[in-house]
């Protein structure tokens, strides 16, 4: 199947600064793709080039097989963008804002579609409210509504939940999944790694304008991730039984807890059996899995260490 977005050798320079330095990326149809990276990594620059807000210095970007410069009208009809910064026009109400945005895309917004968007974003009660009078969270939801009025094939969400409370964040996640189920491809950038881990089928890690990693979220976590099991013992032991050493166990100072660290794909069953065989009584059990955040920090730190002279 043809990728929704194809990026080849993409470069963007601002004077001497290379914001993007030869990025190759395909976004697959129907996936949720998360683009992760520290501030200034090039995430927004990349999205902006695809959406037509910026011109590339070199390289090629295609949306649904069409070039974003030569066939800009066709590609922009296929793309919806929720920008990072909240913007609103204080001259217009929520309904007027959505109708105007649809009009720019050549779409006469039907009453049914308008009601559906307002309902999905919990803005029905604010339909006739001036956008200036909306709360920050509502303004952000209105931005999402504006990006959806023309029913885009691919939706770019640039830090969609920045500054948004937990409840709204969860409801936006649910809506993003609903959009994907309807066939919309989603590309999101986020600082909340938990968000990417929760939503994304695949992640790309970008830093210094270069794409460091591009992988299925689960595979990435398996490959780089570790699982940690900490067993608090009913009574302290002076030394680690040899059978547990074979499983890579470590005794905490004081002898009150044993810690195992295994790779993401390994099971804990044999370890627990070995603990039982060694006759240790367990008071408490604690497990922790490496998060996407841990992997992200690992990858970016390793890349920066390599770049250091």
């Amino acid at each position: 199947m043809q990728p929704v977005v194809q990026i080849r050798g993409l470069e963007k320079r601002f004077g001497a600064l290379a914001a993007l330095d030869g990025v190759d990326l395909d976004v697959r149809a129907g996936e949720i793709f998360a683009l992760l990276g520290p501030n200034g990594a090039g995430k927004t620059t990349l999205i902006s080039i695809v959406a037509g807000l910026l011109r590339a210095s070199a390289g090629e970007v295609r949306v649904l097989g069409k070039d974003v410069v030569r066939d800009y009208q066709a590609t922009r009809r296929a793309v919806g963008l929720v920008p990072q910064e909240i913007n609103f026009d204080p001259f217009f109400t929520v309904e007027e804002t959505l109708r105007i945005q649809a009009g720019y895309f050549g779409v006469a917004l039907s009453e049914a579609r308008l009601a559906e968007i307002l309902e999905a974003l919990d803005l029905t009660a604010k339909r006739r409210t001036n956008s200036r009078a909306l709360s920050g969270g509502m303004k952000r939801r209105l931005l999402i509504g504006k990006a959806l009025v023309h029913d885009p094939k691919v939706l770019f969400l640039d830090e969609p939940t920045a500054g948004v409370d937990v409840e709204l964040r969860r409801s936006l996640w649910t809506y993003v999944r609903t959009l994907r189920e309807r066939g919309t491809t989603i590309v999101l950038t986020t600082h909340y790694l938990e968000e990417a881990e929760e939503l994304a089928d695949r992640v790309g890690v970008i830093d210094g304008g270069r794409l460091l990693v591009l992988e299925e979220t689960e595979a990435l976590l398996r490959r780089h991730g570790q699982k940690r099991l900490r067993l608090a013992l009913a009574s302290a032991i002076p030394a680690l039984p040899p059978a547990l050493k074979a499983h890579g166990a470590r005794l905490e100072p004081g002898g009150e807890a044993v810690v195992f660290e295994v790779s993401g794909g390994d099971a804990f069953g044999p370890i627990l059996a070995a603990v039982a065989d060694a006759g240790l009584a367990i008071r408490d059990l604690e497990t922790r899995r490496t998060t996407l955040e841990d992997v992200f920090v690992q990858l970016v730190s390793a890349e920066r260490a390599e770049d250091r002279p």
């Binding site: 959406a51 807000l53 963008l81 913007n87 895309f105």
Partner: peptide, 17 residues
Amino acid sequence: VMKIQGTIIDVLVSPLS
């Protein structure tokens, strides 16, 4: 004002020629 408010984005991402 659209540049300052950021609403110029609405026009720039649209297929308007």
